[in-house]
Design a protein around this nucleic acid. Structure first.
Lengths: 256, 256
DNA sequence: ATCACGGAAGTGGACTGTCCAATCGGCGTC
DNA sequence: GACGCCGATTGGACAGTCCACTTCCGTGAT
């Protein structure tokens, strides 16, 4: 009856929070069944469901029909859905997204250069190699581009920064995928070179250089994107085309 | 008209998303009543509630009992709850939180120095003045400290960056509030001086200096915090339960 | 003995119906 | 005209029931 008395649905969130805090729930674990939680917490099942739905929206849990409710595994992740709504509600410009991404990635590159381990640099090197190998396949190139940046973010050694990079980048990659098909060999070639330079800077622990190169890369990339799609103004005026929305997880077909 | 979705509850989210995209829903607006949405979307009310609960968890909407469900006003905000869970689940160290905050705030200071307007600098100046005025009142000092950093983030001109700063800082301020009462005049004096220096750098559009000073300030602050307390966890977000602080100073029922 | 198939049990997803509590506006009273 | 009360509206929560999907185990065919 302590602090949990305000909202019944808050009780659910608090309960899960405390289970996590106590170490009773870890990654990959399954939560008790909704019916069990219902009796255990003394609240109705719809209320339990509401609480779990909230946790699900926060990305804390993930429900699988017929199986159970689980805590996702893998690296820490912040959903990018809230950002999408935020952008729509406040009319955030695409430039702001680009800039935010640049801020995060440049910092991540700096951190990576500061403390990248041998394993981290190896992963990055691998992606650089894959980039050069897929210069003739824009879609494949994009996949390794994404993985490269993810590897750099991971090498930063700061999981929060990595999560933020992922969150903001997700917005960016969405239409990036559309323009990827139109990229020329020249663009990809230049991009691959820059990626390699960034990798080398990280490997040499040259913080300033890594940051500078990453900044240049992203500025260049943003400029290229900007010249690609003008219809920004048109899209705003035109009524939404209804069903084109990427409801499906558009995150790119990565397997590993 | 209901867009065919996999999940019934997804329909609700999609519906709201499209209303926002069409401009039919803006900040401060009230959503249709749950019962109306129920008939309009052809799904049951508990389902509507589940969808709204998810949106609420994302911070997109906010329900007020007896009044309605609204879209919050004010600057864009990303809840920090997900980060809290992330920290608990992945055992993120406090240092990571500090570092992430530093990364964001340093970048924000740089952007602010680049493009701060007269109004923005005025707001920052005001908070600096308030900092000096409340050197003998740690709690009040903390309030203006927070406002100062918020003003800087806002002056960055990038709402996404500002939101991220707010999100990460929220984690930080929680235990900061506990240690605030123990801060000495000397600490506050130094902090105020640094804040003033940061402000001046921003006003002079000296990007490098602003970043350097902000970085120094936060490093110093982190070092001070580190010597204060050890434990990290996720205590239930609200007031600390009885078992934590070895010595609790004056109660300070101030909730701000 | 092995493996594929089928069904039962467990789980989340959703619906119907009902009641409670908070809010807000309008009406009547003072 | 100001105040206060009361009811309509709205979100919050509950109970019971049914459905869809997943999983797994036992059965039977190979």
């Amino acid at each position: 009856m302590a602090k949990s008395g305000k909202d019944s649905t808050e009780q659910v969130i608090t309960f899960v929070r405390e289970m996590i805090a106590k170490g009773e729930l870890r990654q990959g674990d399954r939560l008790p069944a909704e019916r069990d939680l219902s009796t255990k917490l003394g609240v109705s099942r719809p209320t339990i469901r509401a609480g779990l739905r909230a946790l699900s929206a926060m990305g804390v849990v993930k429900s699988r029909h017929g199986s159970g409710t689980y805590i996702p595994e893998g690296p820490p992740t912040l959903g990018s859905e809230p950002l999408r709504f935020l952008a729509a509600l406040h009319g955030l410009s695409r430039d702001e997204v680009y800039e935010a991404r640049r801020v995060l990635e440049v910092s991540a590159a700096g951190l990576a250069a500061k403390r990248a381990s041998a394993e981290h640099t190896a992963v990055i090197a691998e992606e650089v190699a894959s980039l050069f190998a897929s210069i003739d396949d824009p879609q494949e190139f994009l996949v390794h581009d994404i993985r490269f940046h993810r590897a750099v973010a991971s090498a930063s050694g700061n999981q929060i920064v990595a999560s933020l990079v992922e969150m903001v980048s997700a917005l960016y990659y969405e239409h990036r995928r559309d323009t990827a098909a139109r990229a020329t060999d020249r663009n990809l070639r230049d991009a691959a070179d820059l990626h390699r330079a960034i990798y080398q800077a990280i490997r040499k622990h040259d913080i300033d250089l890594a940051q500078t190169l990453m900044n240049r890369h992203l500025l260049h990339s943003a400029a290229y994107q900007a010249q690609e799609d003008q219809p920004l103004g048109l899209q705003a005026a035109r009524p939404v085309k209804g069903s084109r929305s990427p409801r499906k997880r558009a995150a790119a077909p990565d397997a590993s």
